[in-house]
């Protein structure tokens, strides 16, 4: 409870509320605006005559007898077959999250339980890898992938994204495992378990909160990636983000921009739901790294 001395004077309180409100508008309004506009025709979304058209949907009414139309969604999902990209994205995300968590958990656990000097150097190497922009690696992938004839397919991209994900996953899980007392698995070893059995029966049951948080960030990395997926996937295997970029590449004819708007809204929806359900995990994940330094 705030003491009387800490209570804000009225002017400051108004200022604070005003500032929070401005930030709220800045953060949320673009999403609402684009969501609202995605049900309009292009002439309303980009209101040339009058910006209130975007709210009332004058042209949309003229074209479809109603202020809302799903034409853009129909165009994107059916005509441009955006559903294929959606399926690709979810295949990629699912396998990236599963694989990188499996191998990352083993690696992160080992790093947190070994006290030799090389663990430090491995972590530093991972940090350097984490800092490198993924696009700088792509030039190194292309030539071998063309030679081996594995360019353009989903499994290649999944493996690459898993590898790019590893440094972050390792850091996160390493700091998480360090918070699990060593005595737990050491007592299991005293009772005759091997290291792996100790991990399997003692650590695995208690590690899920950290693993879920790390998994969320692995998912976001795979879902949000543009540089790698745009370069490594062939046209028929594209995920959502490079597909949206390709919508823009095609000429800005009427309707095509609205396809991109509909696709953008469709691609934002899963993230919206993700934040809604996992807000606490995301916040704790963001701060975990900070607290650990």
């Amino acid at each position: 409870m705030a003491s009387k001395a800490q209570r804000m004077p009225l002017g400051l309180r108004i200022l604070t509320y005003g500032f929070v409100f401005v930030w709220f508008i800045l953060a949320a309004f673009p999403f609402f605006w684009t969501f609202w506009g995605s049900f309009k025709v292009e002439l309303d979304f980009f209101s040339i005559a009058d910006w209130t058209n975007a709210l009332t949907g004058e042209r949309t009414k003229a074209a479809y007898d109603s202020a809302f139309t799903g034409a853009a969604y129909h165009g994107a999902w059916v005509q441009e077959e955006f559903w294929r990209n959606v399926i690709n994205t979810f295949i990629v995300c699912f396998f990236v999250v599963c694989t990188s968590l499996t191998i990352g958990t083993l690696g992160g656990y080992a790093l947190s339980r070994s006290s030799f000097r090389y663990t430090f150097w491995l972590l530093i190497t991972a940090l350097i890898f984490r800092a490198m922009p993924p696009i700088t690696l792509v030039a190194g992938y292309l030539l071998p992938f063309f030679e081996w004839n594995v360019w353009g397919i989903l499994p290649t991209t999944i493996i690459v994204l898993v590898a790019i994900n590893q440094p972050f996953t390792l850091w996160m899980l390493h700091s998480f495992f360090q918070n699990i007392p060593k005595e737990l698995d050491e007592s299991a070893k005293v009772d005759g378990c091997t290291q792996f059995q100790a991990f399997r029966h003692v650590i695995v049951p208690v590690m899920w909160p950290g693993v879920i948080t790390t998994g969320l960030f692995s998912f976001l990395l795979a879902y949000n990636d543009f540089a790698v997926t745009a370069m490594l996937l062939s046209e028929s295997n594209r995920t959502m983000v490079p597909a949206i970029a390709a919508f823009l590449g095609t000429t800005y004819t009427e309707g095509n921009v609205m396809f991109a708007v509909a696709a953008v809204v469709s691609a934002t929806a899963p993230l919206f739901i993700l934040v809604m359900f996992f807000q606490r995990q995301i916040v704790s994940g963001l701060t975990a790294g900070a607290v650990k330094g």
Binding site: T102, L106, G107, F129, Q166
Partner: peptide, 9 residues
């Protein structure tokens, strides 16, 4: 323990 992730990186 470290082999899979190390190999990937």
């Amino acid at each position: 323990f470290f082999l899979p992730t190390g190999l990937a990186m």
